[in-house]
Write a protein that binds this DNA or RNA. Structure first.
Lengths: 192, 192
DNA sequence: AACGTGTTATGATCTGGATCATAAAGTTTG
DNA sequence: CAAACTTTATGATCCAGATCATAACACGTT
């Protein structure tokens, strides 16, 4: 999709590490495709505590639900590193969906997978204890990795994905480190 | 969509109140369209505590994400009252998506709205106190109602949607009942 | 190798909401 | 309309995880 957008002269914008792509509580104007880089989508509560709603990388896109529902964004979206973005406005986006059957199918599949993740995490946050939450989250994240590969997330990020505090995540990971499908080397997590 | 399915001789199945349409941890075979009735989608943890992932009524459909991702269901789906269901298998479903542009757009919008709801609830469960959670949930649910209309959900159901216990929901609703956009009459909730 | 910054680690205390218990409404059924 | 349920209500106790405090690594920089 990105290739198609580039071939058709869509404009890319550069966001420096830490720059905000959009703010919560504003009306959406575009869908954002990541040409290169990484982005995090976070909701922030009154006390400034972040919850990571999603992490997006090169080739992925975000921001469609609010655009399609014509509702204000729930989350802030921030470049986690220097990132190139192609913004596609509503008209263009709807046109892409109409004219490219494969893209609308891709979107449906992408949304399915996000729904799956969110349903899983909702169950965890609603009903499960800290250890269980971390175990489920880690197993899910490790699923994407090759054996021996490192899970490049800090304890703080895992806390912000699971609704726990850093200290709790640190203690949970320590406790889980035997019986799990990861190993701990100098505090880092590697898939077994 | 339902009309189209009926016109094309898709078979409807009757589920009595309390009957299970599908179980968590089984492989999906179909997408389910509700011809009439109501259905709840719940995840259940080891201690038997339920979390309501979704409530579906006449005209709505459910079960697509697992089918499209070819992953086991996360939740059980149960008829909340006598319900008529049209089960559409994978091939038929993919065919519907290909041949009916409007339907694939409807699905995208439906999924957007479910994602929106789940993102909202995740933020609440991760970061907010009981009163805030209930307030957000009630305001969201009241949004669909006419002024004066009753919100037909028990405290237990609200608890199962917000990850709280009944007693906590009861106390929260009492505390919120002044400053909110609902009124309490004999324990029932009405939109102002 | 000393310094600075980010991350992991660990112990001690505190608290919101769970849990337990019991009762009072409200609703449905025979 | 009484009996049998279901749902709402309220008080008392308890505990997992938040919060606070402080230290120890890890790693890049000069």
């Amino acid at each position: 999709m990105i290739k198609y957008l580039l071939d058709n002269h869509y404009k890319t914008t550069m966001y420096k590490k830490g720059e905000v792509i959009y703010h919560a509580h504003t009306m959406p104007r575009s869908v954002y495709f990541i040409k290169s880089g990484r982005v995090r989508m976070v909701t922030v509560n009154d006390e400034g505590k972040e919850f990571i709603q999603g992490l997006f990388k090169t080739g992925e896109y975000f921001g469609e639900p609010a655009l399609l529902l014509n509702k204000k964004y729930l989350a802030d979206t921030i470049a986690t590193q220097d990132t190139e973005i192609i913004a596609v406005n509503r008209t263009q986006f709807l046109q892409l969906l109409e004219e490219h059957r494969e893209f609308s199918m891709d979107l449906i599949r992408t949304m399915s997978s996000r729904l799956f993740y969110k349903s899983m995490m909702l169950e965890e946050l609603a009903n499960e204890q800290a250890d269980h939450r971390i175990s489920t989250l880690l197993n899910y994240l490790l699923g994407d990795l090759q054996p021996g590969e490192e899970l490049k997330l800090t304890r703080q990020q895992l806390a912000d994905m699971s609704g726990l505090r850093v200290e709790t995540v640190i203690r949970a990971i320590k406790k889980l480190s035997d019986q799990q499908q990861f190993k701990l080397i100098k505090g880092k997590l590697f898939k077994k």
